[in-house]
Nucleic acid binder design. Structure first.
Lengths: 293, 293
DNA sequence: TGATTGTCTTAGTTTGAAATGAAATACATT
DNA sequence: AATGTATTTCATTTCAAACTAAGACAATCA
């Protein structure tokens, strides 16, 4: 009862998100059935999630009548908390590898010992890293890390790959951007620019960047483009939660994004494409392995 | 003892391949140690693989002296036999889905029943399909197929994606093609053109095509380009083992590949890039869902 | 009565432990 | 210097148990 399942955890967060999106205020009533339908899930985990929220004091159950929202939830202080346990482990592994604290080859049991994980967790972990071409199964037992620990050339290759794809998303015949997405993105960028920079802002900043690029790829209407960009984001997530470029780069980066948004609103896709190209080229100049865009 | 492991199976095939590459003749002696080193594997599975080959009468063990090669192995009659069980199951699932014999959502148990597989096999299967963005986990239990069963637009999107990437492989700064690869590719293509077309040639033809495009991507020196092209090949493998265009297309396709090889030998990367672009564009015209390049 | 919540049953999945089997490694033998 | 043998380590499979989600039904309130 005290153990929030991954699914329940996710649903609890999505519920709060839905409350925010719908602009519900304290005193509003939540509906289990419609929430379950909306999340494409059965009522059972929704009930459990609501119980957890009730235990946190965010909602109250009225027996046989419904669930009352006690206080309108604030936007999450630390975006990026959404990362599940596996994802956190992935980041740790990537960092340890980056710092040279992991050998080239390693067995599953060794990983279980090092990170104090169960076998299924390690398997999920490795499967996802293999999916990103960070590791591969050895022919016999164990895993081997690909690429050298700190690989200079990977940085350039990554950007050349992105330069092939991302500037073209605007020119896909099916490209279509929702106004709501533009508004939300603009708001997030402007908030980033207006708030003072803290060490802990790095995760949120990365997520905003990733959402920006992935959202554009999704708008292209080409599922393969979208898939490739999402994969890039996942890969970079492993090494980019620490931002070491300083605040000026944050400003420049955000300004360039805002400029693209304005250009897109004006409907000039050719110009947007050119902006994206120079945006990526400028980012490529930053000489740091696994640098951020 | 009568059960050849996946690893042992693979090693047995690689051993024959190595024998062919080194041009060994009947009467030559094989060496367990060096073979194990060369395959980056311990001696144990190599021994087992040799035992299997001995049982097939290809080699003979001389106690305490070594292993004698009895007959120089011929090139495999049916390339494409290399597909393991999981891969075959993937093809079956893709075909069933394509033919509308699978619902949009399905549970693991249902899959185990339908395909008579163990749970771990189903998990591997689904993990790989999810890797290709063909399915996704439902939030609760089960899996959901993405894309509609027979999706017209996927065809065009796929080619537009490939058009962004593949013509550029020749222009990557690190592009470098080995002469040996060119020679081998040319030989395979010419053999395809000279032999009569049989129904069973389709698999070999697909593999040759895939190897051609993937080999070029690997030569680009950009791991992300290589990875993207390999992924495309894996995806197409699921729906392209049946070739329905007729022999003329085989001829046209092979001729275009040969022309590219000649252009590359001449060192004209710009022209090769243009040829690849028109090659893909021509293939895109062929109006069939999930058509081949 | 209609709609929503509470309760219960069933089907499905995940976890954990034990057993099996295979690969890596070290050592002996030829 | 290679093959043969034995031991150890590791991974996979299997099975049972615990748990979770889905779906159906009963109870409650407007």
């Amino acid at each position: 009862m005290a153990t929030p399942t991954r699914l329940q955890q996710e649903i609890a967060e999505r519920l709060l998100q839905m409350v925010r999106e719908d602009g519900l205020q304290a005193g509003a009533w939540l509906n289990e059935n419609s929430a379950a339908r909306r999340l494409n899930v059965s009522r059972t985990p929704v009930r459990a999630a609501i119980d957890h929220l009730a235990r946190q004091g965010l909602v109250r159950r009225h027996p046989n009548k419904g669930v009352e929202l006690l206080s309108a939830p604030e936007p999450p202080a630390d975006p990026g908390t959404g990362a599940d346990a596996t994802e956190l482990a992935m980041v740790k592994v990537a960092q340890d590898r980056h710092g040279g604290r992991l050998p080239d080859e390693i067995s599953e049991l060794e990983l279980m010992r090092r990170y104090e994980l169960g076998r299924p967790e390690v398997q999920r972990l490795m499967a996802r890293l293999a999916d990103l071409d960070m590791v591969e199964r050895k022919r016999g037992y164990g895993w081997r890390f690909l690429h050298e620990a700190r690989d200079q050339s990977a940085h350039d290759e990554r950007y050349r790959f992105r330069l092939l794809i991302e500037p073209m998303v605007f020119l896909e015949p099916g490209f279509l951007l929702e106004q709501g997405w533009i508004d939300e993105m603009r708001a997030r960028h402007e908030q980033t620019l207006s708030q003072p920079w803290k060490e802990s802002s790095a995760i949120g900043f990365y997520e905003m960047n990733a959402d920006f690029h992935e959202g554009l790829a999704a708008a292209s209407g080409n599922r393969f483009i979208h898939s490739a960009v999402r994969r890039q984001n996942q890969m970079r997530r492993l090494s980019n939660y620490d931002w070491t470029y300083g605040y000026e780069r944050v400003v420049v980066n955000s300004r360039e994004h805002l400029q693209m948004l304005a250009t897109l609103e004006a409907g000039d896709h050719q110009l947007a494409s050119a902006l994206m190209r120079s945006h990526l080229q400028r980012a490529m100049q930053l000489r740091r392995p696994d640098g951020m865009d």
